[in-house]
Nucleic acid binder design. Structure first.
Lengths: 190, 190, 190, 190
DNA sequence: AATGAATGAGTATTCATTCAT
DNA sequence: CATGAATGAATACTCATTCAT
């Protein structure tokens, strides 16, 4: 979009970094690994990203965009309950990755949240977006405690991800999401 | 129990490392920082721990011991429900730390779970211990689905911790635990 | 053949390492010394050689190349006896170095042969090459015990080098080689 | 002999060091390894040897004593030729060790001869002793070139050891010694 | 003479970052 | 824009040596 010649290197770098950051963590992933994964010469990385933190920021931005697209997609569901169910269903689809490497949003947020240089707040954006969107859905359902419900729902998802990862068992993710789905549809609404 | 001539350096090293690992993560914590925190000369660390991984292992072992002590303490509660309530109450007490650096058990497990060298399984031990203990409590309550309940309970705790950390809000931890307490006491038992 | 933009650093590093390895041995030579000898910043060594062992391997490879070139050069001699004489004559030319630091091939082989990581077999290659070549010469002379003669000849050279070094006397090398030359020419051939 | 209480620790240290120095070399052998091999507490080593070099010196001294004893033993042989044959026969007996780790005298001399701190000359002593003794034997045989013959004989031994080690073949040592034995008995004497 | 504990100078190695071309 | 080469600050780890007891 912004590239004049659209060589796609920037996109490849962000994509490669996103996957490596999820699988290895920020600290243990080197720029050389990212360059290799994206099939880009090492020195070239710095044309697109001034520092490693800039690249991490770009990965976060890409994830924010993905989350926005995902949420927009859910809007096609007919009811708020269906939308929320679609949301949590995403983690079932990701369950194998989650069991092996944790939730991509949760682990990145956890790792960067311990910092104090701005990246910590940046990393929380995908979580913020999801919480805000889910809050909107609960409000549409007529619930005045929408924010609390949103937090409770996403806490369920993240907790399921943490345990699924700790025990290396994808089915824990599935079970937890099934609980949440039942909880969503059983919520009393005015 | 400990060395006769113990100057307590080993204990100071483990304690310092434990705190730094929680606040900074494993990868970004240097042995120099640990040595400094424990007021021990850098070269001396290797008298007690052959490698950085060994030190991490010692921290995990210390955490396991803490968890055991904590669970043993809960046994003084009169009922299974009271014991489970005491368990989740711990995260309320830790809420400030959790909001700033995440759950000490959850973050360490998450970070090390991506490895493949044995330390990943080691790091999951505190979580395993807690899950097993809670399962026992639910069984005492007469529940046949004790394991599932145990996982659901601890997933709630961990999810609360992740969100509390992402939003930097200790009260999220409190709220989530309150939900879990109510859930515990409202569980139908035979 | 070499890099277009070759600044010759790699060559300088190998050359410097080769000399230091001969004069100091593998274990006591530090990469800092090699970097200094090659007038290269310490960190830069790792751009060319991933590990110290890799650098040692490169030195061995360079020595193998030197040996090949040397043997090829001897082929210009008219007779097998002249070629073998040219071979042992090399150690007379090197006698000052040999008396001070030992035979470059022998000492490296001796030091590395105690290892068990592959470098031991690598280090023996120059010796193997020379033995095979000399065997060929003896065979050309019509000797059926060519291998035994090759080993005997080179054992004479290496023994002379060890004693020349132990007694710090270059003339021992000369004397021993003179003996070998006489032995070569006096060999009965069919 | 010198120990009041003859605890034998010093002897065990020297014996352990001697073996490790032969098998691993001086530079790569640590004092901790020596202490372990001698079943002596690490800190205790310094009661017997002020520095690592002191320990190496003690090993050399012990080897000198061994050589003296060995040579004295050979004096029981009836003729100079029998004595010289007994000498070179030693390396056949050691052939397995030689093929794996080189000649104990030759490798130590080679490694230390590159130094410049006195230890280099010390390490050559066993070689000197042997050369002097063999020279005496050749002189008894009536040879006026006794020194040259002594050097030639021991060069043969050391050369055989170097090649036996490089090719990891004990039989090379045997073959070379058989040659030398034949050479000894075939020497023309007045 | 004994010893577990300690120490610091050194060593290989990594990696984000820079730069000449 | 592109890129191979370069660089230095940092990091884990080793080990001879010292020391309090």
């Amino acid at each position: 979009m912004t590239d004049q010649r659209a060589s796609g290197k920037r996109e490849r770098l962000v994509a490669g970094a996103s996957e490596l950051l999820h699988r290895q963590g920020v600290a243990t992933t080197t720029l050389a690994q990212v360059a290799h994964a994206a099939a880009v010469p090492p020195g070239n990385v710095y044309y697109y990203f001034k520092t490693k933190d800039d690249l991490v920021r770009a990965v976060i931005d890409a994830r924010v965009a993905e989350v926005r697209a995902m949420l927009a997609d859910f809007e096609r569901q007919p009811t708020p309950a269906a939308r929320l169910t679609a949301l949590v269903g995403q983690w079932v689809e990701m369950r194998e990755l989650v069991a092996r490497y944790g939730c991509p949003f949760g682990t990145l947020t956890s790792e960067l949240d311990r910092r104090d240089d701005g990246l910590d707040r940046e990393a929380a954006k995908p979580v913020d977006l999801i919480l805000d969107w889910a809050e909107g859905q609960f409000r549409e359902l007529g619930r005045t405690d929408a924010r609390a419900l949103s937090v409770a729902l996403f806490a369920g998802v993240q907790g399921g991800a943490v345990l699924s990862n700790a025990l290396r068992d994808p089915e824990i993710m599935t079970t937890e999401v099934r609980h949440l789905e039942r909880w969503i549809t059983s919520l009393p609404t005015p």
